[in-house]
Design a protein around this nucleic acid. Structure first.
Lengths: 221, 221
DNA sequence: AAAGTCCTTACAGATTTCCGTAATCGAGGG
DNA sequence: CCCTCGATTACGGAAATCTGTAAGGACTTT
């Protein structure tokens, strides 16, 4: 089993809960805690420099900013930064987020090893996840397994970029100009039209405003 | 101090944490727990019928739906339903939500007595909140106190309704028709235009799509 | 009573959206 | 080689958005 673990979670009650679960259920005792993203990063770098690296990172996604100045505001950045130092580190994300698209994004873009959803069965799922990751598996939460069958709309980077620009209030003409300036193709207004129309169909949206509202609700932006 | 308390919180680790805090810090021992909204409601009604009512409800806002069928999905409905039975019950909401507008809404629309934000200092804040509510005070979280000074954009129900309709993809003409059908005034297209333009100014939005995106991000919808 | 303010409403024009049709181009299969 | 398919692009027109100006009513202030 893993011997040295870092838990990054700003919510102190949950932080204690995780430690307790690791102790009682998984028999891991060398556990370091961090309530701030920056703190987690520093602890990680120190351990790596001293050649006693962590084997597993369990982290939340969102960290509240408060009096202390934080350069990393989200667990995503933390994971990216830590992976730069130690690419093979095992990462389990432990977060409130339950939207399948967003969770899938974590697996695809960050190559995390496991995900546990804060919720009613967090203890059981966390134990199962740690054991699975230790065996080298990718452990999806039940929420995603269920949803993964159908209902997946394949959005490429261009679609996402379009949605982001639209959500920022840019007109299609402005987007076209940006694309031409950056020499990204396709970059004609009519293609943008077509693409967005396809998104209307995909998400059953009536117009651009509706589309952005839907996508925001789904957590894709 | 309060003697009989109901804790409604689906996240089991947090649930245990609250009980522990109430025991250790506030010396409350008659604590009943509920992991489901419906469960909380039934326990409450039973206690009230047996004339041993709860004095305080501590509840989360969001409850995950799962295998069990839940008629109440949110803590808001739970509070409303419980208030119908026992209007003077003290209610403390204990939730992830940190956006001032949303928290303010809870105080204004539901007349809750206190709010504690899940976070780094949840224990201290929870204790402080319970003690304040026991003295008959309304206890705002620090997040809201800080933000309440400036930065508040006053949205009336009409504005919210407009934003909701726009986010649902209705055109202004459709909204006008709805309003006329429901005999709600104002209901002219030009007033709708003016109102939305004012919202543009308030939120520094470039167009309707941008506006809805901003408002979604702020959590007002 | 007069002046000022705020909200509602009407109207008009420039711009943008939305949704057709149609032409072009490149990749791949028969 | 030709044909098809999908993606890109061009173009056009009805509808909707956005932004002005202006006028009327309710209310307050002086």
């Amino acid at each position: 089993m893993f011997t040295k673990v870092l838990v990054a979670e700003d919510y102190e009650i949950a932080n204690q809960g995780i430690v307790k679960v690791l102790n009682d259920e998984v028999k891991i005792y060398n556990i370091h805690e961090a309530q701030y993203c920056d703190d987690a990063y520093l602890k990680f770098r120190k351990a790596h420099q001293e050649e006693e690296p962590f084997e597993l990172l369990i982290t939340d996604l969102s960290f509240k900013e408060n009096h202390k100045v934080q350069t990393r505001t989200s667990g995503i950045e933390l994971i990216q930064d830590i992976r730069k130092i130690q690419p093979d580190i095992n990462v389990i994300v432990y977060s409130q987020e339950s939207r399948p698209d967003k969770i899938n994004m974590l697996f695809q873009k960050l190559n995390i090893n496991g995900y546990v959803c804060k919720g009613q069965h967090a203890i059981k799922e966390l134990v199962h996840c740690i054991q699975g990751v230790y065996k080298g598996n990718i452990v999806l939460p039940p929420e995603v397994k269920d949803a993964n069958q159908d209902n997946i709309i394949n959005l490429d980077d261009f679609d996402i970029m379009l949605l982001e620009e639209l959500a920022l209030g840019f007109t299609k003409k402005e987007i076209v100009q940006k694309l031409k300036k950056q020499k990204i193709s396709p970059n004609s207004e009519s293609t943008i039209d077509k693409r967005v129309s396809k998104l209307f169909d995909d998400f059953k949206a009536k117009n651009t405003t509706h589309l952005v509202a839907i996508v925001k609700d789904l957590g894709l932006l």
